[in-house]
Design a protein around this nucleic acid. Structure first.
Length: 890
RNA sequence: GGGCGGGUAGCUCAGGUGGCUAGAGCGACAGCCUUACAAGCUGUAGGUCACAGGUUCAAGUCCUGUCCCGCCUACCA
């Protein structure tokens, strides 16, 4: 054991344990079991992706929950898998192809899909091995992929079911079109970004008149598709023009001037050009006034033949330039005014989205949204933090039809068939045999489904739906869903709706929405911003456990969680601290082996430090369990950190050292027991390190023992044995005495090597007796003392430093070394602080209302506090007076 | 325009339902290589809890308003 390296080296130990866990099937959950079920489905990462910081946080938290519940004896299932991730993945493939000089369309659908599968097969293991490196205890034999046969069947089943319920329909409607990806997308996928644009003021002449109407637009190129000009019906400036005809510049077309209440009189010139085919509002105005929809763009964003010849073939942006130039030439451009406004961009490729009219498949989600709201109100789903609930309601209450088809190739092709003879539409699991018209010649819809449609089925499609499997019976609804709040609408809301639609039951009971990892400036970390930490590099540098601890520790309830490097550094130091504590214990156990089992320690005489550390451990167990149960992960991290470092290492191990040197090894055996239990508590956060140490510690028996278990992973979660207030109070006094002596030594610059005499005045018999027993034993371990005197009353020795702890007065004679000025300064500083605090406490207690209305307990506390402070104050005042006297003498 | 979150030590943040002398990590300063750990140990400094009111015996915590910062959301062309 002594050959354990002095410095904790994560690389040495993190590799081997995962293999053991896997080999022993520790992560596997049976579909049928006597244990209570607990299930989490992983938010499936992109099949071709790699682990980023968001995954690291998300999966660490899930692993904490799963490992914790597994240790508690639950039948804990963590269902893993990956997502085909539709458009994003296709875009990356397109870029790869572009490097080879091939375009998607040249390659053709079949070949393209072939390439995608090839790429999928090459990269699929990558993300999985990264999750394993992170320590994720997923049930890997259940791994799923959204394009698997089983899941594809679930997709078709869900589609047909919803179609038959009339919730899925086909329509031609104005939506968001991405000219780069050549597909329609939903509102959620459009990211409004503020950009510096212009307001172009353009003159439209009026037919048979000298009057001109000035309109303002940010998109002058769309005027090629104008089919009206609109003014507000009550706008006095334009009354005489309503019903007249405007002459559209550059196009040689006549367009009507109409009145519509949508027009804002205050904005721009109060006159609005209407392009029903390329603007959402104009589309609606067009509908109200039965205007022609004149589409001027090709799907990939170029001007089509509906525009005058000289514009055809230009890109959107070139066309804008040309239109502006031409208007200037005609003297039709009044002015250009800079204007900052939000422009929609496709969140996947960054292209400016084009509002356009095109045929699309939609899902009417409104009825399911209503059911989701009701289910949530009934408490069937709970959101944590609670504030997310109102975001959820707001979104659900204002939900719009979901465009579910994408004009892409990588995904689930819609199970819709058209009869090639009569064009009848059929939704079915397979190609229909025969049409109503008698024909049997069908073609399948070309479009694929929005990738979120299949992810929306994830909690039950992964468990074998539409089959009524044992998995579904046992694990659905799942227990918790853990993900970032940024995909509440994209994914969580859709899962709830589709869960209700397909299973008649919500997919999970609790949704825990954690924050997003941010940099020091509070900006969300993302690859595109270049401010991201690479989890794998971090793991290389600091180790997985240090990284995981830092993530959990950072995971406060805030929407953004900063993760400075120093935080990860602290995790590494913590790991090293634990490592060395274990090393110390193991080294000493060689000389003092635990007799038979740790059971022996329970009957051993319970010295103060043993009673104390057991009490503190019990408290830590309760606090940690409570924290994880309530998703306050950062609190669990902090509780464990404080206990392990500042109580167990700083104090208990120092006591134990002393005991061992006095040939009293019980304290050491208890140290081993406490560390063993703490390793179990810490295991969900730091799985590798805790396994390594747990394996080396004796853990055959003892309280909360994990006898017969081969891994901490499957050991039991510690149970609190109860706290011991008496031991804690006594120890607190002892600690204060020790700290005050250290403080005096430090501040008065007593040389390290010098021993000091300590005189303690302790008027109360009970405390004095306890001090007499313990102080002589404990003090030498913490500070160098030559002699300790404890008496009911004693006078302050000449030239001594002083500290007051409650009724205790501590004097340290420092005849040769004391600097009276320094001591005077030290005491008077404390005295001043006391005066302030005493005054405040006095004021509170002098208030009759306080005595009358505050709870008795609070009043008593305050009273005790005041008395304690007054005692100290009096003693210090006397000493200060004496010091001043002696200065005069000098 | 609405809504949400935040403003606490030099930095990053804790402080569930109001009640210990407001805490931690990092950083700073001083001193220690004390045989588990210098990735360590000991001590010290540092905060009128954004501002102004209010409720209360009692406010960092609850209410109102103001000022900053961030996010979400909305059709101002």
């Amino acid at each position: 054991m002594t050959n354990l390296p002095k410095i904790y080296a994560p690389q040495e130990i993190e590799g081997k344990w995962y293999e053991l866990w896997q080999k022993n099937d520790y992560f596997h959950a049976e579909a049928t079991s006597d244990k209570p079920p607990y299930a989490i489905v992983i938010p499936p990462p992109n099949i071709t992706g790699s682990l980023h910081i968001g995954h690291a946080l998300d999966n660490t938290l899930q692993d904490c929950l799963i490992r914790w519940r597994r240790m508690q004896g639950y039948n804990a299932l963590w269902m893993p898998g990956t997502d085909h991730a539709g458009i994003v993945t296709e875009i990356i493939m397109e870029r790869k192809l572009a490097e080879e000089g091939i375009s998607r369309t040249e390659l053709g659908r079949e070949k393209f899909i072939e390439r995608m599968w090839q790429w999928k097969d090459e990269s699929a293991g990558y993300i999985v091995s990264q999750l394993q490196q992170l320590g994720c205890s997923c049930d890997w034999e259940r791994e799923r992929f959204t394009l698997d046969e089983g899941l594809s069947k679930a997709v078709r089943t869900a589609f047909v079911k919803l179609y038959n319920q009339g919730l899925i329909y086909h329509d031609t409607y104005m939506g968001n079109w991405c000219p780069y990806c050549n597909t329609g997308i939903s509102n959620l996928e459009v990211e409004p970004i503020e950009i510096d644009g212009n307001f172009y003021h353009i003159r439209y002449p009026i037919k048979d008149s000298d009057v001109v109407l000035e309109i303002a637009t940010t998109r002058p190129e769309t005027m090629l598709g104008d089919t009206a000009v609109a003014v507000h019906p009550e706008d006095e400036r334009y009354q005489h023009l309503i019903g007249k005809t405007a002459l559209l510049p550059l196009c040689d077309r006549e367009i009507p001037i109409i009145a519509d209440v949508h027009v804002d009189r205050e904005f721009g010139t109060g006159a609005l050009k209407v392009t029903p085919a390329h603007d959402t509002n104009d589309y609606e105005i067009g509908g109200r006034h039965d205007l022609e929809q004149r589409t001027i763009f090709t799907p990939d964003g170029y001007i089509n033949e509906n525009a005058p010849d000289n514009y055809i073939g230009l890109s959107r942006w070139d066309c804008r330039k040309r239109v502006v130039e031409d208007l200037q030439g005609l003297d039709s451009l009044v002015k250009i005014v800079p204007h900052r406004h939000a422009v929609g961009h496709h969140d996947r490729c960054g292209t400016v989205v084009e509002p356009a009219i095109f045929p699309q498949w939609f899902m009417n989600v409104q009825p399911l949204a209503q059911r989701a709201i009701e289910a949530t109100k009934k408490g069937e789903v709970k959101f944590i933090p609670e504030r997310e609930t109102s975001r959820f309601y707001h979104w659900m209450e204002n939900i719009e039809p979901w465009p579910i088809s994408r004009q892409r190739w990588w995904g689930h092709r819609l199970p819709i068939w058209y009869c090639n003879v009569c064009e009848a539409v059929t939704a079915a699991m397979e190609t229909p045999q025969q049409c109503e018209c008698g024909a049997s010649d069908f073609r399948q819809e070309e479009d694929v489904l929005d990738t979120w449609f299949s992810s929306g089925l994830w909690p039950f499609s992964t468990m074998g739906w539409p089959e009524n499997t044992e998995e579904l019976k046992t694990f659905y609804p799942t227990s918790v869903l853990v993900t970032g709040w940024d995909i509440l609408f994209f994914w969580v809301a859709r899962m709830i709706m589709l869960g209700l639609g397909c299973m008649d039951e919500v997919p999970f009971r609790t949704v825990y929405l954690h924050g997003l990892v941010a940099d020091e400036k509070g900006q969300k970390m993302s690859k595109s911003k270049g401010n991201s930490i690479d989890p794998l590099e971090t793991i290389d540098t600091y180790g997985t456990d240090a990284f995981r601890f830092a993530l959990v520790n950072a995971s406060t309830p805030n929407p953004y969680v900063p993760l400075p490097e120093s935080q990860i550094e602290a995790g590494k130091r913590f790991a090293n601290k634990i490592w060395n504590a274990a090393r110390f214990i193991l080294m000493n156990l060689e000389k003092h082996p635990v007799p038979t089992s740790l059971d022996a320690t329970e009957t051993a005489q319970e010295t103060l430090e043993i009673a104390w550390i057991r009490s503190r451990l019990s408290h830590t167990i309760t606090a940690t369990t409570d924290a994880i149960e309530n998703f306050r992960f950062h609190e669990a991290a902090q509780v464990l950190y404080a206990f392990l470092w500042h109580e167990f290492c700083d104090w208990y191990l120092e006591f134990a050292k002393q005991r061992v040197s006095q040939n009293e090894p019980e304290a050491l055996w208890v140290a081993a027991d406490v560390l063993e239990q703490t390793m179990r508590l810490l295991h969900p956060l730091m799985p590798f390190l805790t396994e390594e140490i747990w394996q080396q510690l004796p853990h055959g028996g003892g309280r909360n023992a994990s006898s017969g278990k081969n891994s901490v992973t499957v050991s039991s979660w510690p149970e609190p044995i109860g706290e011991n207030p008496t031991a804690e109070a006594t120890m607190a006094t002892l600690m204060e005495v020790i700290e005050s002596i250290r403080s005096i030594r430090g501040e008065l610059n007593v040389p390290i090597g010098a021993s000091v005499e300590v005189h303690i005045q302790s008027p109360g018999a009970e405390v004095r007796e306890r001090l007499e027993v313990y102080l002589a034993q404990y003090l030498p371990a913490f500070t160098r003392v030559a002699d300790i005197t404890i008496a009911e009353s004693l006078s302050k020795p000449r030239a001594s430093a002083e500290a007051v702890i409650g009724e205790l007065a501590i004097y340290i004679p420092l005849a040769d070394i004391i600097d009276l000025d320094a001591e005077h300064a030290r005491l008077s500083k404390r005295h001043q602080q006391l005066v302030k605090d005493v005054t405040a406490a006095q004021k509170t207690l002098d208030n009759p209302n306080f005595i009358q209305r505050a709870p008795e307990k609070v009043v008593a506390q305050k009273q005790a506090q005041l008395e304690r402070m007054l005692t100290e104050q009096e003693k210090l005042a006397r000493s200060l007076a004496m010091l001043t006297e002696s200065e005069k003498e000098d």
